[in-house]
Design a protein around this nucleic acid. Structure first.
Lengths: 221, 221
DNA sequence: AACTTCCTCCGCCTTGAGACTGAGCATGTT
DNA sequence: AACATGCTCAGTCTCAAGGCGGAGGAAGTT
């Protein structure tokens, strides 16, 4: 793989050992040079700004972790793409969550790669991203298509109204109808109406299953 | 740090890049040699057995990830410690969960280290473990003491019996009492008794909160 | 003006959930 | 033998949950 230019890469990950391992390994690859690192999103933006104003070598591509303290990968990607539009970003994460894949791509990442890929695949993805040819695992692309299908199939979410979503969240916190009524300043009757609508719309049988639904979706802490 | 002997290490992690990064980095450390790798627990045990029967160099210490396909770090640690009692195991994980720390230590791991530690700290932990001096992050030791406090406060876990835990899990799947009764071949009355006991023991008000409890604990998929 | 959607609320009714009390049986412990 | 624990089941009772049908007002759409 003879590329005339050297790819300058930045690694953003809160795990010291992932960062160190990646940079150690990637530095051995010909054509790749790790020129910057950061442990979270905020730091990454600061580092980038520092490189910019001091006219130092600027990364062509960022390997960005999703879950980080201070500022996560999605938000950082969004911000970074706005500030430096010609910089590529590959989101690198441990988990496959359909929603996150969508968000990541929407935020402007060219690629979304699971940490479980082999190191060869990662290098391949980096090379691809550098040339504007996004590469992603088959699992990721499947997740993406699932996400798109869900999106087009069910409008924006599930067709839940604002009020219904509020009630749903309170149910997911274990609140009883009476408590929900007091919290939302409405009558128990109204709460029951919303609950019935939720049961119908989400196609489940009782409030316990509603709570489980929310937690499975990862909407709750 | 001049040690006469070289520490032979095995790395067990399903993430190619963690494994590769770690081994690349640790190999640069004097006194540490990475002699084996595996991508999950089952594979790790197979590799160890292979080394044993062929009289090949055997690891003094394993860096073991917690969350892995096939067989997780806890189960693998338990099994490995039984088969090779003089081998040390350091559990290496992304997450801090009080329960898991307890389980890990109980399983026989000498140390429990977060992946967020710096690489120097990791080397320090490895050296410590090698000499029988367990090292762990302050966060981890805090989690451990929390776990112990809970333990002494509330018997062993929550004091749940086998049957109660079965009922709890079915509730967390959204099953009604009747369904649970049929699934466990007991009467609804008995299910109700178990549910009442669960509500009392876990100090919550209804089955929905039981389901939420389980999901928050991460006991459900 | 007609229509739809959302939020609100009512009464009536059935059923499931859960509390309380009490009890039989098997196991293992002291 | 006495005791504790876990699993089982029963009856009774209260109340929250949820279905069903109806309805009014606010807001935006066609």
């Amino acid at each position: 793989m003879s590329m005339s230019t050297i790819m300058k890469i930045m690694i953003v990950d809160d795990h010291d050992m992932v960062r160190l391992g990646l940079s150690t390994y990637l530095s051995l690859e010909s054509g790749i040079e790790v020129i910057a690192e950061a442990t979270n999103g905020r730091e990454a933006l600061e580092v980038l700004e520092g490189l910019k104003v001091n006219n130092l070598p600027f990364p062509d591509l960022i390997l960005m972790d999703l879950m980080m303290p201070e500022m996560d990968g999605i938000a950082t990607t969004q911000e970074a793409i706005i500030r430096y539009p010609d910089m590529k970003i590959i989101i690198l994460t441990s988990f496959l969550e359909d929603d996150k894949v969508m968000e990541g791509i929407q935020a402007g990442a060219v690629s979304y790669v699971l940490k479980s890929v082999s190191s060869e695949e990662l290098v391949y993805a980096i090379n691809g991203a550098f040339r504007g040819m996004p590469v992603m695992n088959t699992e990721v692309s499947q997740a993406l298509s699932r996400g798109i299908r869900q999106m087009s199939a069910s409008k924006d979410d599930n067709g839940l109204t604002v009020r219904e979503r509020e009630v749903l969240m309170l149910i997911a916190e274990g609140k009883a109808n009476k408590e929900i009524a007091e919290e939302l300043f409405i009558s128990i009757k109204t709460v029951k109406t919303h609950v019935s609508n939720l049961l119908m719309k989400l196609d489940v049988e009782d409030r316990t299953q509603l709570a489980i639904y929310v937690h499975r979706k990862g909407w709750a802490g």
